[in-house]
């Protein structure tokens, strides 16, 4: 561990030996102010959004004014004091539906992204560490990458039938490939480092090298990928549910939109309280995870790290 760089303007350390960026940039700063680094702010905004959604999901029964499965008022009521976002076609409170829907949407997003990350990381590791095998595996990854996304998603989910589990499987199946690519390139680079060669020359087994030297430094990258994949998975879940290919009886943001569409809210004034709020929530969740993922990636990914 080398000592901390002396520059006070760069207080935090990543633990990776480096020289002060400021010191090197100093001469240019005289002529033009360096662009401000918003990464930290972006990360905080993302974390706040994601954090609030997670809190809403956890405490849904406490926050929601009604049980979303019961008839809380007259069907198709416009917003009122009793029902801030009105009621749906069978008199369920839309606000409560959305609050409880946060659970399903986040759960599907996180589980699908975790599964995708596991698969992607495993394939990326193997593909990067064993380049011969990798060159074959990566052609498979290429195939998955070029598959037309939404049509395949629709075909698969129509074929497998409607359930939350199937939705998760289908989404995971489609989003693991980019992760595999990113991880593989990192592993390719790591496995040629001098200390890996040194370890190998001392007869270290592959499993040991992967565990000791490759995986720890790949793992952070996978976390960044995971957060970005969650954003994609939430969007996909909403698309599927909206199209009626998810489980329409499971309360999620997408299924609220599905019912809005099925019961004509797009053609009546009800779109203002039945279509816009779930749409905004989906956007917010995707944005939150995307911002967080971006910030993490900036910190973690060696290719993007500012130098």
């Amino acid at each position: 561990m080398t000592p901390k760089p002396p520059s006070p303007s760069h207080p935090k350390t990543t633990g990776i030996p480096t020289v002060s960026f400021r010191a090197r940039l100093a001469p240019r700063e005289l002529t033009r102010p360096a662009p401000r680094d918003y990464t930290r702010l972006i990360g905080i905004v993302g974390a706040v959004i994601v954090g609030s959604l997670v809190l809403v999901a956890i405490f849904a029964p406490l926050i929601a004014p009604y049980d979303p499965t019961i008839r809380a008022g007259a069907p198709f009521s416009p917003p009122s004091a009793a029902h801030l976002l009105g009621t749906n076609d069978v008199g369920q409170d839309i606000l409560s539906e959305l609050i409880f829907g946060t659970r399903v949407s986040l759960m599907v997003g996180v589980v699908a992204a975790s599964a995708a990350m596991l698969v992607g990381t495993a394939i990326g590791l193997v593909g990067g560490y064993f380049p011969r095998v990798g060159s074959i595996i990566m052609r498979g990854v290429d195939v998955v990458l070029v598959l037309p996304f939404l049509p395949l998603l629709i075909v698969l989910s129509a074929y497998l039938g409607r359930s939350v589990l199937n939705t998760i499987l289908v989404i995971a199946f489609l989003i693991w490939a980019p992760t595999a690519r990113v991880i593989r390139s990192q592993v390719l680079s790591l496995s040629r480092r001098d200390y890996v060669t040194a370890a190998r020359s001392m007869n270290a087994r592959d499993g040991y090298i992967i565990r000791r030297h490759v995986l720890p430094r790949t793992f952070l990258l996978a976390i960044g990928e995971f957060v970005a994949a969650t954003s994609a998975a939430i969007l996909l879940e909403s698309s599927l549910s909206f199209l009626g290919l998810g489980d329409p009886l499971q309360k999620s943001w997408g299924s609220v939109l599905y019912w809005a569409q099925a019961r004509g809210a797009f053609l009546t004034p009800a779109w203002q309280w039945w279509v816009v709020p779930p749409g905004l929530l989906i956007m917010l969740a995707a944005l939150g995870f995307a911002l967080l993922g971006y910030a993490l990636e900036q910190k973690i990914n060696p290719r993007l790290r500012r130098a």
Binding site: F76, D89, R263, G264, L267, T268
Partner: peptide, 8 residues
């Protein structure tokens, strides 16, 4: 048409 379309 579905019932909710009637008033519209």
């Amino acid at each position: 048409v579905t019932p909710e379309q009637v008033p519209v």
